[in-house]
Design a protein around this nucleic acid. Sequence first.
DNA 1: TTCCTTATTGCAAGTATTTGCAATAAGGAA
DNA 2: TTCCTTATTGCAAATACTTGCAATAAGGAA
Lengths: 148, 148
Amino acid sequence: MSPCSTLTEHLRQKGYRITLQREMIIQTIAHSEQHISAEEVFAEVRKHTPAANLATVYRTLDMLWEEGLACRNDLGECRIVYAALQHGPHIHLVCRYCNRLIDADPQALESLREELDTEYGFTADLQHISIFGVCAGCQLSSEKLKEE
Amino acid sequence: MSPCSTLTEHLRQKGYRITLQREMIIQTIAHSEQHISAEEVFAEVRKHTPAANLATVYRTLDMLWEEGLACRNDLGECRIVYAALQHGPHIHLVCRYCNRLIDADPQALESLREELDTEYGFTADLQHISIFGVCAGCQLSSEKLKEE
DNA sequence: TTCCTTATTGCAAGTATTTGCAATAAGGAA
DNA sequence: TTCCTTATTGCAAATACTTGCAATAAGGAA
Ligand SMILES: [Mn+2]
Ligand SMILES: [Mn+2]
Ligand SMILES: [Zn+2]
Ligand SMILES: [Zn+2]
């Protein structure tokens, strides 16, 4: 089964209606290897059909995220990016100073996942998480500043 | 030393100019026990002086966050909230289905913090983090749906 | 104190995202 | 197949946040 029909089937099970718009949006995100913004999904869908509206793209991407069928990340730029599940798993370390992105091993989250599950019954989305902080370079330069 | 002058001192060290606007914004966030949005900070500052502009509030709050002097969180609502450092530490578990917030023990993040530091030299902001996922209640109801 | 440099602000315009509502179209029932 | 219900869409307006630029004012030098 193609990744697209897996998604549409899941939605159908849940009682969502499968519209042309949703099919196009799903196709776009499922075929994109990388992070993609709502505006970019919109542009891609528009290449194939004029039947698309940016508000619908936002609503559909957020719905896919709510259903656990897509990732949604703030990477410190001024827009949210989305990705298909197969894009993960990895951690994005985002430097709040210089905005650099570092990819980290998602294994580091396994014990956290278990703890949140057993302690709070909470199933955390940790396959593609953003963690803000300060990168090694920025820390170094701020220490230098202190010495002066 | 009051929490406000600690912040302004830190900024002065770093070469930032201490303006009336910054003082008012710092005062507002430092005296707020809870999460507060930029719009709310703006309203509070406006009570005391007309010398304030929403763009400046956004710029200042983001600057405080960049400097590690304030927290900045997406709690699943349609606006970002800020908080003074003394508001933490805790984890906010945010249900992407029903938007419920659950507070979790920040201790769960200690091993992650260490690993990110030693492996990547990355100092993660984990004192007041939001983690998205599905709460126990929503998981239960989605399982019920499957059975039918 | 006065002056100068330049970081910071206000404003207005721009971009990103959300929302209310009437028109449309999935998909189940007949 | 046709019809009906109501979820979904498009549109336009609202809200949330960002940015370029000229005017202002910190704060260091004289
Ligand atoms: Mn990624
Ligand atoms: Mn909190
Ligand atoms: Zn950095
Ligand atoms: Zn929930």
